[in-house]
Design a protein around this nucleic acid. Structure first.
Length: 922
RNA sequence: GCCGGAGUGGCGGAAUUGGCAGACGCGCACGACUCAAAAUCGUGUUCCCUCGGGAAUGUGGGUUCGAUUCCCACCUUCGGCACCA
């Protein structure tokens, strides 16, 4: 007899990897007779610092790709490298190596490491984004966008480190005080002319996910990011006739607009600021420009602003209202200008109180509560008793009456108040009703004008309030009113001329439509999504293929001159300018149109641009007539299954969808979406449950583990140790369990049983388990539930080991072993190939079909009937499968346990769940 | 503050449609093998218990014969957004 081989992954894994590659086993070529399946995993960045996290999206995805292959699909699973970008440039600066050298050295290392995983990557399709034959087409796409009006240039602020003399990306700015990552100098904003893509043009379409199977979580993140809100554009005029537009979602509050606020950067500020306010306005604008977005956008920050001296006219009521500037209004959202309705917007309310601007309520309270504080000495004696008599609730506090009334009691209260009010006093109603009762008049608090009228009277009557600038300021001094001064609910309109009484449900739309008719505005939709800034003042990226000609203007580089090569001999260390600007010759060129002297754009492109179309380059990485070979496109696209981290939900995954839709409209690609299915893996954490990082020293490096356990064990453990979409901490003891299981599987196949045993039922029971496992694993591969795939395989092997002495060398055993190896093959490709070979089966197991499920064999011929009394488990009875409900019922009532628990009582009800359970209710 | 996940043994996790809670694995305990250890194999392992049972899937309530699963409220926790007019 042959020697029994020992499981040695270090020997068999490289052996099979070499063989598969030599045979081109996983080469994916167009085959019109087969259904294609394009599997894609997010391309790795060339950090050179490969840890287990890089395996996590790839290994289980690979197992699934192999499963699809065995299901008969023509599967393509390509890989490449995201090779441009800041980390590379920084690492190179730090170690004084050219970014190109650093990057390509890392790629070498990563290729080697990825090969040890035993993935079915088709390496012929590898694409590297920093390769000129790749970025030639990145540049070509830029020009397509430019020619189709989707790329434009405008001034935009960037973060700038005055010490390093360079622009910084958002992730390079650290801490609350926003200092430079390298030298800790606080960063400033600098306005630079930069290139943008019109992502906003596709905002609406990007919200539609009908044709794609993407996780709800990603769709929600993107939807929130795009931030659609419906409202109206309203045209306001300054009192000198300049028009300006504002966006509002609450056109129903238009009558309550008591001031306007412009973003400090708003272009109109320059024009309208009056000479006496100019100094203050300029100072404020300067402070705002120095502040970071984070400082400006901190919601808990106290609101600040300054008056411009100018006034606007509210189109609906002609009110003359002051125009302020404040940094809580953002130039980047809407029109950078708002109407402030402090009665119904929390921010405006805080601002109005601080600066003494009038607050006018124009929307009814939903709870209908009105409050009034009746000060001691303002009414005749007996007023309190009369209130009691009318059933109006109040509490007494230091002689004052704190009244809270319902809508229906307001008229009674007014009547009583008026008849009891002493001279030189007033009583106010606050909340659902806003009225000031004076001895000679009742004045509605319903307009900016009446705000002043009321205040003038009050100041005269009570010197205590003489310092109050507005009614609301006066009322806010009383804590009893605190909860009724402001609300943001959709109540019915009040104090709004002919619109008063319009129900809250439809008010916004009614007003917006009316504005449209008047020519004062229009129904509008606004998005938080902004256009994509793609300029980077950096070296290690694809140059933007634009030439600036003094005569012809902005000229795209002609196709035949692409790629605009990134020069190697450049000072890539930070100097304060785009490195390409400092190159002695690169920058200077001739205009493609007039052949006169011209200059190149010296900024490079955001790397998200490179990663927006890499799935297209994989189709034909060497193709020269276009970004991809249309033949390949027609066969393989769209991507059928895409896997990667959730952290890309709002960046890469929006950009790549935008890219595809834009290219569709330009006529380069077809279909509405690039990736049909998306699944996100979680993150593998260090053993300390913290994010893996060099500084923490908790990084799990794959190389050591591969030599200790083998790639198969690691692949299986990555699938097993947690829910894949969730991730979790790595466990160095946990992996032992997976390793033991593969060793047991090996021994199970290669070693004969020590003792033989007779068990006539074993074969049938084994087949049953085998086909049940097949059912569950087939299902779990489809649903990305990798952990239960491994546990099902473990269960099956446990069962096989148990039955082995009884079925050794029978047909049932051979079927079980062959099937077991086939379903193990996607998970652990090396050990299954080796054992397949050991059994004398023809190479390769990876060209086998997924085993057929025998539903008959999977059926149990006995069932365990669960017997409950009052929902509590009392007995289990084994019965033949397919037992009738009547027989199950009968058997349950005959159970000794049941009889004991019935204690002679008759069941009220018996519930039978066919083949599963009987519940006896007494 | 708003939006969205998630809470199950000592740990990771499992549980088709509402039907045996804790599969599978780790860890632990005991046993076998060994001079011994490692490795391997076997047995046990939610908690309480008067050995009849009882309690238990974040908490409290509800629907149901029956709830980890459905509904309501709350708590904890993770992620995203955060002055978005």
């Amino acid at each position: 007899m042959d020697q029994i081989p020992v499981y040695n992954p270090a020997e068999i894994e490289p052996k099979w990897q070499a063989r598969w590659e030599a045979d081109g086993l996983y080469n994916a070529d167009i085959d019109p007779n087969k259904k294609k399946y394009y599997v894609l995993t997010m391309l790795p960045y060339t950090s050179g610092d490969l840890h287990i996290g890089h395996w996590y999206p790839m290994a289980p995805t690979d197992a699934r790709a192999r499963f699809m292959r065995m299901q008969g699909y023509n599967v393509m699973y390509p890989i490449g490298f995201d090779a441009f970008g800041l980390p590379g440039e920084n690492a190179a600066i730090k170690n004084n190596i050219h970014p190109k050298v650093w990057t390509y050295k890392n790629i070498e290392q990563m290729r080697r490491q990825f090969r040890t995983m035993g993935t079915m990557f088709d390496w012929r399709r590898e694409a590297i984004t920093a390769d000129p034959k790749y970025y030639r087409w990145t540049q070509w796409f830029f020009i397509q966008f430019f020619n189709n009006g989707l790329a434009y240039r405008k001034y935009s602020p960037v973060d700038w480190c005055p010490s390093c003399n360079t622009t910084l990306a958002r992730e390079q700015v650290w801490g609350e005080d926003r200092h430079c990552e390298r030298c800790h100098t606080p960063v400033i904003k600098k306005d630079l002319e930069q290139w943008f893509f019109r992502t906003t043009k596709y905002a609406e379409e990007l919200l539609n996910y009908d044709s794609i199977d993407w996780p709800e979580r990603v769709r929600t993140l993107q939807t929130n990011w795009i931030g659609r809100s419906e409202g109206a554009m309203v045209i306001f005029k300054t009192e000198h006739g300049e028009n300006f537009e504002i966006f509002t979602t609450r056109s129903d509050t238009l009558w309550g607009a008591s001031f306007m606020v412009l973003a400090p950067e708003h272009p109109l500020v320059e024009k309208i600021t009056t000479p006496e306010h100019r100094a203050e306005v300029e100072a404020y604008r300067l402070t705002a420009s120095r502040q970071s977005d984070i400082q400006r956008e901190a919601a808990d920050k106290e609101k600040t602003g300054v008056f411009t001296g100018a006034y606007a006219i509210n189109p609906v009521n002609g009110a003359r209202i002051p125009i302020w500037i404040a940094d809580y209004v953002l130039m980047t959202y809407g029109t950078g200008a708002i109407m402030a309705v402090p009665g119904h917007d929390e921010r405006d309310f805080a601002f109005a109180l601080k600066y003494g601007l009038p607050v006018i309520p124009v929307i009814a309270r939903l709870d209908g509560v009105t409050k009034s504080v009746v000060l001691s000495g303002t009414v005749k004696d007996g007023f309190a008793d009369q209130l009691k008599g009318s059933g109006i609730q109040f509490i007494e506090s230091e002689g004052h009456l704190l009244v809270t009334m319902k809508q229906s009691q307001v008229d009674d209260f007014i009547h009583l108040a008026k008849s009891n009010l002493k001279n030189d006093a007033w009583i106010e109603l606050v909340g659902a009703t806003w009225k000031f009762i004076f001895t000679d008049a009742i004045i509605d608090f319903d307009s900016v004008k009446n705000d002043q009228v009321i205040m003038e009277r009050c100041r005269k009557i009570n010197p205590v309030v003489a310092g109050c600038r507005t009614v609301m300021e006066m009322l806010s001094g009383n804590t009893f009113y605190k909860d009724v001064l402001f609300h943001a609910d959709y109540g019915d309109m009040i104090h709004s001329d002919e619109f008063s009484g319009t129900p809250g449900k439809t008010a916004r739309y009614d007003v917006a439509k009316w504005l449209e008719k008047q020519g004062w505005g229009k129904v509008a939709v606004n998005y938080k999504l902004r256009d994509w800034l793609i300029s980077r003042q950096r070296y290690w990226g694809a140059p933007i293929p634009i030439i600036y000609c003094p005569k012809c203007g902005t000229v795209p580089v002609p196709d035949e001159d692409l790629p605009v090569l990134l020069p190697d001999d450049v000072e890539w260390k930070p100097t304060g300018e785009s490195p390409l600007k400092l190159h002695p010759t690169w920058r200077y060129t001739t205009c493609p149109k007039c052949k006169g002297k011209a200059e190149r754009e010296t900024d490079t492109m955001d790397t998200f641009m490179c990663s927006s179309w890499y799935h297209l380059r994989y189709l034909s990485p060497d193709y020269e007539k276009g970004p991809f070979d249309p033949k390949e496109y027609d066969y393989w696209m769209p991507v059928d299954s895409y896997t990667g981290g959730i952290e890309h939900a709002t960046m890469h995954l929006i950009y790549t969808r935008f890219f595809h839709k834009a290219l569709r409209d330009i006529g380069v690609v077809e279909g509405h979406e690039p990736m049909l299915q998306l699944r996100n893996q979680g993150m593998v954490l260090g053993e300390d449950s913290e994010k893996m990082s060099k500084s923490r020293g908790n990084v799990i490096a794959p190389d050591k583990l591969v030599s200790a356990y083998g790639a198969d064990t690691m692949r299986a453990y990555l699938m097993f140790f947690s829910r894949w979409d969730q991730g979790g901490p790595w466990s160095s003891t946990g992996i032992d369990g997976t390793s033991r299981w593969l060793k047991r599987s090996w021994v199970m196949v290669v070693e004969p049983p020590l003792k033989r045993r007779s068990d006539p039922a074993a074969a049938k029971s084994l087949r049953r388990k085998l086909h049940q496992t097949l059912i569950s694993i087939t299902r779990d591969f489809e649903t990305f539930e990798f952990n239960t795939i491994i546990s099902a395989l473990m269960e099956l092997s446990n069962e096989m080991i148990k039955h082995k002495p009884a079925v050794w060398e029978t047909d049932a055993w051979h079927e079980a072993v062959e099937t077991y190896l086939k379903i193990l093959a996607p998970v652990a490709p090396h050990i299954s190939e080796e054992l397949w070979c050991f059994l004398g089966k023809p190479y390769s197991i990876h060209q086998q079909s997924w085993p057929m499920i025998d539903m008959e064999a999977a059926k149990a011929d006995e069932i365990v009937l669960v017997i409950q009394v009052n929902g509590k488990l009392r007995d289990r009875i084994t019965l033949p499968a397919g037992v009738s409900d009547e027989d199950a019922h009968k058997a349950a009532l005959e159970s000794e346990q049941v009889i004991r628990h019935l204690e002679g009582r008759t069941p009220r009800q018996v519930i039978v769940v066919t083949g599963k359970l009987v519940n006896i209710v007494i």
